[in-house]
Each structure stands twice: as C-alpha cells, then as structure tokens.
Simulated scan of single mutants.
Amino acid sequence: MRAALISITGQPRDRGGAALLVAGKSVAERQLEFALAAGCERIIAIGSLPDVITLRHAAEDAGAQFLAVGNSHGLLGTIRAADELMVIAPGLLPDERAALPVLAKSNVVLVLPASSGVAAGFERIDLERAWAGAAVVPGGLVERLAELPADIEVTSALLRVALQSRVPEARLSDQAITDGSWVIVGEGGDAETVGQAWLDRRLKSNASQGLSAFLAGKALRPLAPWFLERKQSFASLAGGATVLLLGAVAASWFGYAPLGLVLVVLGALVIQLALGLLPLLDGRFRPPQRRASLILPTLVDAALVACSVLAIEGTWLHRLFPPAVLLASLYLRPPEGMPRIVHAIGDRALLAGVFAIAAVFGYAEPAIMVAGLAVIGLNAARIGAVHG
C-alpha cells in the first residue's frame, strides 16, 4: 500500500491565521489531490483541529483511508516495512503532471539544482541540490524516527533519513518552477497571485471554441474561486441550465418562441460555464467527467431544435425539416474536418440568439434554413478544397 504524509501544521496561513486558500482550497487539499493521483490509498496528516477535519472529509470523500497523528512519534507503527510513504513538504503546491510518472516508481527523492531551488524556497540538501518537496520512501525507514525527538519537522527528518539510506534521486525540470506549476507557497504568501496562476493553467479561453465557450471562459476567471468554495456549484449550474432549457420549450409551446430562444441562449451559456468548471473541480490530474460533457450539450441541442420547430408555422413535418437539416449538418462532420468558421457559426447560443431576433419579425424559418445551408456549403467547400 502507498500512503501519503501531509503536514498540516507547517502549511502556509494568511494574515488572519486561517489556512491559505489557492483557488478555493487549502494547500493541503491541493497536496491531497496530487497524492491521490500518485496512487496513494491512505492519507496521514500531522496537525490539529480544525484543519485536519477538513482534510479528513476531502480524503474520505475521494475513497482514501485517513489517519491523523500529533507528532513524528505518532507515525511509528502506522506504516509497514513493505509499504511506501510519499512525503510532501509543507507549502508545496504540486501542479506538474510530469512529476507523477517519476513518483510512480518505487522509492525516489525529487531534487532540483540548488541555484534555482533554494531561490524558489525549496529546502537545500547540499551545495548542488535542493529537495523538490516530494519523495517516496520505503515504509521501513519511518521507524528511524524513533531515534529523533518527537517535535522535529517530520518531512525534513524523513528526507534526511532517505538520503542517508541512499534512496534513488530524480531531477525535476526547472521549467516546473519557471511556469509556476511546482512552487513553495510561503507563510502569508500572495494567495491571489498563486491562485490566478493555478487557474490560468486550466482555463484557456479560445474564441475558436465558439462564442458561448469563449464568453463562459472569460466569466469563469473571476467567479472560479467563489464556485470552488461551494461543493454543489456544478450541480447548481447544471440544474439551473436545465430549468432554463425546460422553460424555453414551455415558452415556445405557448407561443412565445422569441422568449424561448432567448432562454436557450441563457441555458447554453450557463452550461458552458458548468463545463468550464469541470476541469477545476476534477483537478489537473484526472480527466473531466465525460458523461456530463456529452449530456449537457445534448440538452441544449434538444431545446434548440424544439424551440426552432415551434417557431415555424405549418404542419409538424414542415416545421421539423429545417431544424433537423441544420442539426444534422452540424453533427455529420466530413472526414476532412470541419472548417473553423463552422465551429463559430455552429455555436448554439449564437444560433439561438439569431433565431430569436428573426422570430420577432416572423422570419425564424428562413433564418434556420439559411444557417443549415451555410453549414452544408462550408463543409462542401472544405471537401472540395482538400480534394481539388
């Protein structure tokens, strides 16, 4: 079994004495995410209430075992000789995926050049090396703590024991320090700057993703810390979007097609906000929930088609044909790939907004038909350009 040691007492705190938060979570909770991604099934925390309780809930919610001890001697007897213990330095904000394969190997001490590592706040080993703040040591070395005072700094002591026992070393790239993905957050550190850098590595707004995704990404940057502090934020956003989409269909059914399409715009934007939040909630080391990524956009498409059908006059077959052609042209991608402009004009919030304006003046059907023909034409032009 692999366990992780997280020191609560040594973690950075803000000026008020509370645990310093990085994008809505304490540094210890960020270390927990990393430890779980590295295969740790058990979390051992050194510290006192109430921080230990917060970490306990987070660990148990993730399915890991949890144990809290008061000092270094509390570790004695908790780790078997055949087990592995991942030691994480207090204040380390580990956000570098490249470190995971290295730490997945049995027994390793991550090191940095002393010149860059010490300047960045990492513990010096000697004139040439600094500890990168993470190591995996054999469980049998933990019993060596019995030879030391109980009130020592446990992580540093285990580092020295590991080095004396010639545990293999692996060097972490300097780039991890440069890009801020592997940093030591000091006491009273600038949580806002560190948190913003953490968000920037996850939120990459790109206009080519579509207008609604671009706008949602821009809105999420200032709102992300607020969302991350609330466990049900994703469920609330997804539920609110579903209510908006159901309201859109109801409004269109009762003859208010422009209003219904406006509600589709709002529902699509809220869903993009929820989808943008997923990578932040799942962490950097786990893929986003694919089921939600598939189901939520499908709800938008269903509402857009329903409202478009209800915005057109005539028989049901006549009403259904233009929205069905449009949706099929958006989903049936040519082997050559879909042109970027199709991604742009195929944005569901943009389409719903245009259709809403057209519906006000009684031109919903022509607008839907023109959109469908435009997508078909652009895809055909793409095929012709590739094979021409």
Rank of each mutant, 00 (worst) to 15 (best):
E33T: 00
V194A: 05
P287E: 11
L277K: 07
L261K: 13
F122W: 11
A150G: 07
A306N: 01
A257Y: 13
I383S: 01
V342S: 00
Q289N: 15
A35S: 10
V243I: 14
T193R: 15
G117S: 09
A28G: 05
L281R: 12
D190F: 12
V309S: 07
R284Y: 12
L158D: 01
A224I: 00
P101G: 03
G240K: 08
V118I: 13
G210D: 03
P322K: 04
P334T: 13
R284V: 14
V375D: 06
S7G: 10
K218R: 14
I44D: 12
L246A: 10
G186F: 01
A157V: 02
G24S: 06
L211N: 02
A81S: 07
A120H: 02
I376C: 00
A150C: 02
I383E: 08
R291T: 14
P94R: 06
E29A: 15
K231R: 07
I271R: 05
A356R: 03
I368Y: 01
F285C: 13
N71C: 01
Y256V: 09
L332S: 09
V52D: 05
G247W: 02
P50Y: 15
A238I: 08
L21D: 15
S233N: 01
H318I: 15
A238V: 13
V136P: 00
T155V: 02
A62H: 09
G377V: 02
N71S: 08
T54E: 15
L110N: 02
R284E: 15
S165T: 03
I44W: 07
G70N: 11
A81M: 10
L296Y: 10
L158W: 00
R2L: 08
D347A: 03
R129G: 04
G117L: 11
L21V: 08
L275M: 10
R144Y: 03
L263V: 07
L67A: 08
V22A: 08
I46R: 06
V142Y: 06
C307M: 14
V109Y: 04
G346F: 02
T155I: 00
K231I: 13
L373R: 05
S173Y: 07
L332D: 07
P322G: 05
L277A: 14
G10F: 06
A302M: 14
A219V: 13
W253F: 06
A104M: 01
G276E: 09
E123Q: 08
R348M: 11
H57M: 05
D347C: 06
V27C: 03
R97W: 02
I345E: 01
E153F: 04
P279R: 10
C40H: 03
A99E: 12
E29Q: 13
R97I: 09
M338S: 12
G388R: 08
L21S: 12
D151S: 05
I6H: 12
G362I: 00
R290C: 15
R160K: 05
R166L: 11
V325W: 02
S48K: 15
I44T: 07
F122G: 06
